[in-house]
């Protein structure tokens, strides 16, 4: 001990050159540099933008006012398509999740193929198929646009929902199932009292995200061919884009409407996530 202390520097007396920038000082300087960069970029963008044109083309009050009468219906239609699609997606997704967990190999195989297929193709293709292919292939013409939209969007979201549900069910510890069975509970009763309630809590945050994704996917329903009263937000936005002056203002307005739906949901998802996290840790 005493022998080494003559060669090594005593604590607190590092070579002067290494002490000029303490780690804390360096972190502060780095943060300041980041702020500086951000200010520069913003200034450059602000200088490059033609503000007058932005005002008339993106935030044109006249154009926005012209759209207002259509907005409430379109807003409601978008919500209707979302909820209906989610209902289909949740029902079918539950069946698919149970099939994925089934002891019957064929069921597992069918569910896997379904899920991989619908996750792998664009939702756009499914919606178009529903508009044109299904009437030809099955000889049925689904009258209601809401039903068509719900089926088309539901088929796609069921694939995602099934995977979310399966993960939730599998996240419930196997030991709790065995404990329930050892108390004499049947398989079905164990599912209902032990597995499903806990899986539901685990699954709530990701399920909210599925709902958000579905909300945005309703922008595809115009491909089914809509009557005026059935227009959704995206459809009236596109039409207004073609007809009126005011440049891109309709799209900005529509975007704000979508955010009105999705932002609170995202907030909800985050809240639920925090709550379930806190619970499982407590």
């Amino acid at each position: 001990m005493a022998a080494t202390s003559t060669t090594a520097p005593a604590p607190g007396t590092l070579p002067a050159s290494r002490r000029r920038w303490s780690p804390r000082k360096r972190a502060r300087a780095f943060r300041a540099a980041q702020y500086g960069l951000l200010v520069l970029v913003l200034a450059a963008v602000a200088a490059a933008v033609d503000w007058e044109n932005v005002g008339t083309n993106f935030f044109n009050v006249e154009a926005a006012r012209a759209m207002l009468p259509q907005l409430p219906t379109a807003f409601r239609n978008t919500l209707t398509y979302t909820v209906a699609g989610f209902a289909v997606g949740l029902s079918l997704g539950t069946v698919l999740a149970l099939m994925r967990l089934s002891a019957v190999g064929l069921y597992r195989w069918i569910a896997t193929v379904y899920i991989e297929f619908f996750r792998g193709i664009p939702a756009l293709l499914v919606v178009i198929s529903f508009g044109y292919a299904v009437p030809i292939a099955f000889g049925v013409n689904i009258g209601s646009v809401t039903t068509k939209a719900a089926l088309a969007l539901g088929l796609v979201s069921a694939a995602y929902i099934a995977e979310t549900l399966r993960a939730g069910i599998q996240a419930v510890p196997r030991g709790q199932v065995e404990a329930a069975r050892s108390l004499g509970m049947s398989h079905g009763r164990t599912l209902r009292t032990v597995v499903v309630p806990q899986a539901f809590r685990i699954v709530l945050p990701p399920m909210t995200n599925e709902f958000i994704l579905l909300t945005k996917d309703t922008s595809l329903v115009f491909l089914l061919g809509l009557a005026v009263s059935q227009y959704d937000l995206t459809k009236i936005g596109r039409d207004a884009l073609n007809s009126a002056a005011g440049g891109l203002t309709p799209l900005f307005l529509i975007g704000a409407c979508y955010l009105l739906i999705t932002l609170p949901l995202g907030q909800l998802a985050r809240y639920l996530e925090k709550r379930t996290g806190a619970r499982s840790r407590s």
Binding site: P173, G175, Q176, E178, A180
Partner: peptide, 9 residues
């Protein structure tokens, strides 16, 4: 059981 396996909810 070794791991208690109480119903956590």
């Amino acid at each position: 059981f070794q791991q208690f396996n109480l119903f956590a909810h």
